[in-house]
């Protein structure tokens, strides 16, 4: 029974990683860049929803929408100002810029919201008025799943299905896949590559805002560095699953979450990160493209 509850907490944590990893993987797939500032967009999403609830008195769900809107705009601005001018630059220059943007966002947050952690109010309270866990009890109460966990898993599945449909059915989604394969060929089809990249950043950043709200709902301390560690783990998840692959980000996210939860439960809390990254190293040695990353040979 313990194992099952660890598994569930791993899956719900992994669902958050998967949502973040989707943003990494989509941006990488299309712009061929690692947006290391992605984790900090999560933090901005957290603060915006926090402010929406605290200062504007918004309902948690409305605050979530506000955070998504702000992060979408933020993603488009960051892409346009910081990354677009570097489209022809070496990938190292883009990588360093992304790290720069990450510090810029963290320090701006420090300036605006200060270093004192904010106590975030969960989207669905984790405990009810009497202090008992607000959870679904199964198997005669021996297994309990918090409603927040259920919401997180549902959000992850909805996002995953939505993105899969978007990229496989819609014109814009197909154009994104075309751009990720061959930008010049996409241009010759009449696809505006810059617009497509902006849309990708917009989607990734909106998802980061969702992840921020979910993350802070579980772990209610909100600081300017809140996004960096989940960001790095989600990046790991994206690489684990095969960077550039949407189902890969989903699978990678869930696995990293479960591995982390299991390592904390059965090995050691301090060693959890080491275990996660050790598994990543082993997977990459065996499958360098990641679990679902694929290699399609080109015919000439």
């Amino acid at each position: 029974m313990e194992f099952l509850s660890y598994l569930i907490s791993g899956i719900s944590l992994g669902s958050v990683y998967a949502i973040i990893a989707l943003g990494y993987t989509m941006v990488y797939g299309i712009a061929k860049m690692l947006n290391f500032a992605h984790g900090d967009v999560i933090m901005v999403g957290g603060y915006i929803s926090f402010c929406g609830m605290m200062y504007l008195g918004l309902n948690g769900w409305v605050a979530l929408l506000l955070a998504m809107a702000v992060c979408t705009v933020l993603g488009i601005i960051v892409e346009g100002l910081a990354y677009r001018p570097l489209r022809q630059a070496t990938s190292l220059a883009v990588l360093i810029t992304a790290i720069g943007v990450s510090y810029l966002l963290q320090n701006t947050a420090l300036l605006v919201w200060g270093a004192t952690p904010k106590v975030y109010q969960s989207l669905i309270p984790l405990t009810d008025a009497s202090g008992a866990p607000n959870a679904l009890r199964l198997m005669g109460g021996r297994l309990s799943i918090s409603y927040m966990s259920l919401l997180t898993m549902a959000a992850c599945i909805i996002i995953m299905v939505g993105l899969t449909l978007f990229t496989s059915r819609s014109k814009m989604g197909k154009a994104m896949r075309a751009c990720s394969e061959d930008k010049d060929a996409a241009r010759l089809m009449g696809i505006n590559v810059n617009t497509t990249i902006s849309v990708t950043f917009a989607i990734g950043s909106a998802l980061a805002a969702v992840a921020g709200v979910l993350l802070c709902s579980f772990n209610p301390t909100l600081m300017p560095t809140t996004g960096s560690m989940p960001g790095i783990r989600a990046f790991t998840a994206a690489v684990f699953g095969g960077i550039g692959s949407i189902p890969g980000a989903f699978l990678g996210g869930l696995l990293i979450g479960v591995i982390e939860a299991m390592a904390k439960a059965y090995i050691s809390t301090q060693l959890a990160n080491s275990v996660v990254f050790a598994v990543l190293i082993v997977v990459l040695l065996v499958r360098p493209a990641g679990l679902l990353g694929k290699y399609v040979p080109e015919k000439v």
């Binding site: 014109k171 896949r177 075309a178 394969e181 061959d182 060929a185 010759l188 089809m189 696809i191 694929k294």
Partner: peptide, 24 residues
């Protein structure tokens, strides 16, 4: 413009490639 080396979208289906041709 049909570029040198064809430059089709190798990971997309034949029909999706054609749909991209009709993007505009």
């Amino acid at each position: 413009h049909v570029p040198e080396g064809r430059r089709i979208f190798l990971q997309m289906t034949v029909e999706e490639n054609l749909e991209m041709g009709a993007f505009t």
